[in-house]
C-alpha cells in the first residue's frame, strides 16, 4: 500500500475530495458504504507525505483528515436507538459531498472535450478601432464592475502619495465624497478619474472617493465609461443624478 501511495503524483489532485475519490476508485470501494478506517489510514499517509514535501495547500487536506477522524470516532461509539427516528450514518455528509463533487468532476471532462473541439477554430474578430468614432472615450459602454476594480487597482498602483511630514488625523467620509462628486458633476458633464487622483494628496481620500463612485454607480447617480481596460474612467451624470 505504501509503495502505491508513493507512486501517486502529488500534483494530480485538485483537493481532498479528489484524493478521496481516487482512493475509492483505486481500491474499488463502495461510495455508499465507505470503510472509514481504511480510507482514513490511506488519506493520512498521503497528508503526511504532502507535509514532508511542504505542499502549501496542505491546509484543506488536514481539515479533511480531521473530519475523517471525527467520523471514525463517531462510528466507534455505541449507537443509541432514539425512538422511531432513523439513526443517521456519520458518513452521510461526507458521502453527499463526494457524490456532489463527483458529478461536477465528471462534467469537467465534458468541458475539457468541448474545449479541445473548439480550440482549433478562430473567430473572425474585427480590429478594435472604429473609423467613425467621434468620441473615442465611449467605445466600451458596457463597463463591468470587475473592469472598474482592475482599473482602480492599476491607477492606484501608479499613484504616489506626496511626501509630507505633518501628522494629522485625516477625516473623510463617504457621504462627503458623494457630495464632492455631485458638486463637480453639476459644474462639469464629465470627470476623469485620473484627473481626480491628481487633486488628492492621500491614498485614503482616493480610496474613499472610489467607494463614493461605486456607491453613486449603484444608485445610478453616475455612469462610468472607459475606452479600454486600464484606461481612465470617465464619470458622467446618471439617470437619477440630482435626485
Amino acid at each position: 500500500m505504501k509503495n502505491q501511495l508513493h507512486r501517486i503524483d502529488l500534483d494530480m489532485f485538485e483537493g481532498p475530495l479528489d484524493l478521496l475519490l481516487f482512493l475509492i476508485k483505486r481500491d474499488e470501494l463502495n461510495i455508499y458504504d465507505i470503510p472509514i478506517a481504511q480510507i482514513t489510514k490511506d488519506f493520512l499517509e498521503y497528508v503526511n507525505l504532502a507535509k514532508e514535501l511542504k505542499l502549501y495547500s496542505a491546509g484543506d487536506f488536514v481539515l479533511m483528515a480531521a473530519t475523517l477522524m471525527k467520523i471514525k470516532a463517531r462510528m466507534l461509539l455505541p449507537i443509541e436507538a432514539n425512538g422511531d427516528d432513523e439513526i443517521e450514518d456519520p458518513r452521510t455528509e461526507l458521502m453527499n459531498m463526494l457524490l456532489e463533487y463527483k458529478r461536477y468532476k465528471e462534467a469537467t471532462a465534458t468541458f475539457s472535450e468541448m474545449e479541445r473541439f473548439e480550440r482549433p477554430h478562430y473567430y473572425h474578430i474585427p480590429a478594435t478601432w472604429s473609423p467613425q468614432q467621434e468620441d473615442n472615450t465611449a467605445i466600451l459602454e458596457d463597463v463591468k464592475l470587475y473592469d472598474i476594480m482592475l482599473t482602480f487597482q492599476y491607477l492606484i498602483k501608479n499613484y504616489e502619495e506626496p511626501a509630507t511630514h505633518s501628522v494629522a488625523v485625516e477625516e473623510v467620509t463617504l457621504s462627503e465624497q458623494v457630495g464632492f462628486l455631485n458638486g463637480l458633476l453639476q459644474a462639469k458633464a464629465k470627470l476623469s478619474f485620473a484627473g481626480l487622483l491628481e487633486k488628492f494628496d492621500s491614498r485614503l481620500v482616493v480610496v474613499v472617493t472610489f467607494l463614493a463612485i461605486l456607491e453613486m454607480l449603484r444608485n445610478r447617480q453616475v455612469k462610468v465609461k472607459q475606452s479600454k481596460l486600464f484606461d481612465d474612467l470617465l464619470i458622467s451624470r446618471g439617470s437619477t443624478f440630482g435626485n
Binding site: 483537493g15 463533487y101 468541458f111
Partner: peptide, 20 residues
C-alpha cells in the same frame, strides 16, 4: 463547470463543492 450549472453562485458555493 460548477458555475455553469449552478449560476449565479458565490465563491463560497464553489469552494464548498470543490473542497478547496
Amino acid at each position: 463547470a460548477i458555475v455553469s450549472y449552478r449560476q449565479p453562485v458565490t465563491r463560497n458555493d464553489i469552494e464548498s463543492i470543490r473542497g478547496v
